[in-house]
């Protein structure tokens, strides 16, 4: 069996990189005494994966991890023990057991939802320009790939973008093949509005998968 769990990465630790968060989770699992499983071979490593790496500087509200288990444990017990072994800035919000046949969460991610808090001074102008920005037929920006920086059209990768509270709500494509990072959205949006890049706070609120009917829904519910 495997455990699929969601966790928060709070503001205070938002600068900690993906690999460091992964290692912190591994150590927490070790501390918790949860029977995590290890790979076989010369250099065994814990079978723990995150569905998606979160950018340095971003807050995560429902990040997804899965860990293979070498023994039995109930989700409630799993949460209680792991939360006790984690710092307050990094806590689980849900957990459930999944079968070994359940696909890897990493391969299920199709998109992500974000809340982007805009600096006070920029908000009005960005909100005004939002619909015109979305009406563009293409939005070209630079994308870093293994073979260098390439131009890329992110318009089809923006599934949803609207005003929400003190900033924006965004639903953006996130797959191995094509994805739109919030930074790409913001770079083009700010340039479109004729503003200098502002310091926005990015909160990833959910990772999404696609259900049988083709709807994008939170991955942990699939």
């Amino acid at each position: 069996m495997r455990m699929l769990a969601t966790f928060r990465k709070d503001e205070r630790i938002r600068h900690i990189g993906h690999l460091d968060i992964l290692r912190a989770m591994q150590r927490a699992l070790r501390r918790s005494g949860i029977p995590a499983d290890y790979s076989k071979g010369f250099n065994p490593h814990m079978l723990l994966t995150f569905a998606s790496a979160l950018s340095v500087g971003a807050v995560g509200q429902r990040e997804i991890m899965e860990v293979s288990l070498a023994g039995e444990i109930e989700p409630e017990e799993f949460m209680t023990r792991l939360n006790a072994a984690l710092p307050p800035e990094m806590q689980l919000t849900s957990a459930r057991l999944i079968e070994d046949t359940h696909p890897a969460t990493m391969s299920m991610v199709s998109a992500a939802r974000y809340h982007i808090a805009l600096p006070d001074g920029d908000r009005k102008l960005i909100e005004e320009k939002l619909s015109a920005y979305l009406e563009q037929t293409e939005i070209i920006t630079d994308r870093k790939t293994k073979s260098g920086i390439k131009p890329c059209d992110i318009r089809p990768l923006i599934y949803d973008l609207r005003v929400e509270d003190d900033g924006l709500f965004a639903e953006l494509a996130l797959t191995e093949r094509e994805s739109c990072k919030p930074a790409m959205l913001l770079t083009t949006l700010y340039a479109f509005a004729g503003l200098e890049p502002g310091r926005c706070r990015i909160i990833r609120t959910a990772l999404l998968g696609t259900d049988a009917s083709g709807r994008r829904v939170p991955l942990e519910d699939l």
Binding site: I16, G17, D20
Partner: peptide
């Protein structure tokens, strides 16, 4: 402090919030 951390190299040096702190 949070605003400064956006601008420096190796911000995790200053964030704190480690396990067992």
């Amino acid at each position: 402090i949070e605003a400064m951390l956006e601008q420096v190299q190796k911000a995790p040096r200053y964030t704190g919030g480690e396990m067992n702190a």
